[in-house]
Design a protein around this nucleic acid. Structure first.
Lengths: 221, 221
DNA sequence: GTCTATAACTAGATAGAC
DNA sequence: GTCTATCTAGTTATAGAC
């Protein structure tokens, strides 16, 4: 939008993202942000209009690319599968790997982004509700459909709950990035191995035979 | 403490818990609480000393019984197992069922409690940090030890991550209590069936053969 | 124990000079 | 585009009457 001026705007975005992740948007004042960013108090209202609009901008900047990466990955998986049901692991990989990659990449928010996402899942903040939830629902809809094709024996309810549980597991674990866990452990090694481990875990949970559905599944196939 | 006076104190606790869960502690003022509870503005400072102390009291009231229920359940599982390794499903049931029960029981906070717990897992609030985290670490320590006995082929890291993922999955799902999920679904049926489904899912994830550990496990047994 | 009044402070937003 | 000064409204906490 602005030809070359205002690195101020970006500095505000970066600083706000960091502070929001540390303390939560509500606990951070516009004064905290402008001071830390080294810009004037009025800058936030000038560039974004209001604090609420700034919050929305911070979330959107990270959510949009994640959504796109997930959908692109799923496109690839479905293209490979063709008419056949896609492979369960491949679908889960398309869903989870982009998030792991983003959460481990400082250039795209890193752990900060992970905390923001986790927070947005529980925070009833109206802004967050609209900017993020809509993106997320698109993702969920397409992936649930793909998961049902990958696991034709499962009911829609089964798919919903297992995917839901796993989203919770992922976000909770990304949250621990950079934070010292109780046992003194650390987020492991590299993106590759972490995503791989998580997908293997997820696939096993997805293939679990639950008390009620065992009969239905064996009939369905 | 007080012989029979001050139902005000309890009304404040209940109201604060509800409002905290709805909007988050930071977004709720003491005026909001005292107005909604029908007590005087000064009541919170009189009964609790400060807003921070009230927050701590609200969290503690629900966390304590949950911790005790979990440890009691684990005691039972270990007593049954005797010298043998405990059954994986039994350990997971002891860890997760008390939380599900509490989250579905209005008398013990219900969905409100679930939201509070979820919030405390990400909120860097100092009060929450100390009152809850310490309880939670006791639980985690004892259960990780039991899980290692139940799954002797897994490394400590494996147990840590799988338990961690599942705690995230549980809390994320409890969070949806009373909230309309995207697909129009609802938390199912009854405690019994939900806990059962979750434990089955958890056990499958726990038994997953991860890329790196497959060889180690088959040797260990 | 309960309440009113108010102190002491901080919030987000903006008007207007530069 | 940037800054200072300021406005209005909200916050927690408390002093002191009842």
């Amino acid at each position: 939008m602005n030809a070359g001026a205002s690195g101020a705007r970006d500095r505000v975005l970066d600083t706000a993202e960091r502070l929001f992740a540390e303390r939560g948007p509500d606990a951070v004042s516009v004064r905290d942000i402008t001071n830390a960013a080294g810009v004037n108090l009025a800058a936030i209202n000038y560039h974004f209009g209001s604090k609420q609009a700034l919050i929305a901008a911070v979330f959107e900047r990270r959510m949009r690319p994640l959504t796109e990466a997930r959908l692109r990955a799923l496109d690839g998986v479905e293209a490979v599968a063709g008419d056949q049901p896609p492979k369960l692991e491949a679908v889960l990989d398309a869903l989870f790997r982009p998030a792991v990659e983003q959460a481990l990449d400082p250039a795209r928010g890193g752990g900060t982004f992970a905390k923001l996402m986790a927070r947005c899942l529980i925070e009833p903040n109206a802004v967050v509700e609209q900017t993020i939830r809509s993106d997320f629902e698109t993702v969920v809809k397409r992936f649930d459909a793909a998961l049902m094709r990958a696991m034709p024996g499962l009911t829609a309810d089964d798919v919903f709950w297992r995917r839901h549980w796993l989203i919770g597991a992922l976000h909770h674990s990304l949250l621990m990035l950079g934070r010292k866990p109780p046992g003194g452990r650390r987020l492991p090694l590299d993106i590759e191995s972490y995503a791989e481990r998580f997908v293997a875990f997820a696939a096993a949970g997805f293939r679990a035979v639950l008390p009620g559905e065992s009969r239905k599944r064996s009939q369905a196939k």
